[in-house]
């Protein structure tokens, strides 16, 4: 069964592109351009991993992450912040959250494939 990846991103061209890229990499893409509706959907049907934009409306990536971690159902889901903001890397390092990663835009097809394998592989190893 294909592992599902939820992309939360308010930039439509990037969202459309991620759908094609993820499908080609063998994942089941789930897309959302709104953090609030994405949270509701994740709670009823959690994905294997969330690719989360940081600068978006109506709630930004950090607010989304706070709400996700505050809910016992979703608090352990792995999240990769998908952003072009260079400072996010340092913030993520300071948070020391083993289920939080960062992927700096723009990424190539192969870089995305490597990063997803790495994060999902780490997750599988942790679960064991």
């Amino acid at each position: 069964m294909k592992r599902s990846i939820m992309v939360v991103e308010d930039d439509q061209p990037i969202l459309d592109m991620m759908e094609i890229l993820l499908r080609r990499l063998g994942y089941e893409p789930r897309l959302s351009s709104n953090g609030i509706s994405a949270l509701a959907e994740i709670k009823t049907n959690p994905p294997a991993l969330i690719l989360l934009d940081v600068m978006m409306m109506p709630i930004n990536g950090w607010e989304f992450l706070d709400m996700l971690r505050a809910d016992p159902v979703t608090k352990d889901l792995p999240v990769v912040l998908f952003t072009a903001h260079p400072s996010v890397e340092a913030t993520v390092a300071e948070l020391r959250d083993p289920k939080l990663g960062v992927l700096l835009k723009p990424v190539t097809f192969s870089e995305l494939a490597r990063a997803l394998e790495q994060y999902l592989g780490k997750e599988t190893a942790t679960d064991r």
Binding site: D11, I14, M17, I20, P86
Partner: peptide, 28 residues
């Protein structure tokens, strides 16, 4: 630092769809 960070964000974000779509086309 804030200006650099914002400028980097604004310059990098549009590159993502260009790079991604070119990858999609050239992959197949």
């Amino acid at each position: 630092k804030g200006v650099i960070s914002t400028v980097a964000h604004e310059l990098r974000t549009p590159l993502q769809p260009i790079m991604g779509y070119l990858n999609i086309l050239l992959d197949d």
